[in-house]
Amino acid sequence: MEDFIRLFLNVEVMLRTWPLLKQGLWMTAQLCAVVIGLGLVGGLFLSFLAMAKSRWLRWPAFVVIDVLRAVPPLVLLIFIYSGLPFAGLDISPFAAVAVAFFLNNSAYYAEIYRAGIQSIPAGQTEAARATGLTSAQAMAYVVLPQAVRNVLPDLLSNTVEVVKLTSLASVVSLAELLYSANMARSLTYNSSPLVMAALIYLAFLWPLVRLVSRYQRKLAV
């Protein structure tokens, strides 16, 4: 038990390595902002393509979405980070992570938007068009707000997944929270920094996970 506390819950080590982890946390926050922002926008765009009238737009969109859902995000990341330099494109770890997770998340967000938009009856669009709105306006002001509200729990739960996903950036040596914690572990020969990183993730994500459960229970009834 004493060994356990010394190796995993060592407050002295945690305090000593906190500055390193704080920098990592800041990097994780930046990553989250970029990846979530890009994913939300890219996903919306991809969902429009997947619902386009022309099958020449629709089918490629589905192929892209399904392939992106079949390939693990870490594989996509390694492919972009270690593969693209062979094609003469040198890419920074941050850009590699941003591009890889942008692609991965767009596919997931696209599926959620599509489910939301298709849950809105066609009469809503027709009514909006009848009042003189263009189809773009009808989508933006009438359909989308209702659609997003319907799939808010799924959007939220996917966003939690995105935040967890950013920990994979440690594999390509981007100094985010997990990378910093693991570095601190190897410097101190002590696992407490990793436990501290886990606690930091928990502090941010536990409330969101609770919220997702709450929402979903309400829908089930």
Binding site: F8, R185, L194
Partner: peptide, 17 residues
């Protein structure tokens, strides 16, 4: 806990800790 913690954190703790 299982839903809020990134799996890679748990893997590193178990494997290296």
């Amino acid at each position: 806990l299982g839903r809020a913690l990134p799996p890679l954190v748990l893997i590193l703790i178990m494997y290296f800790g």
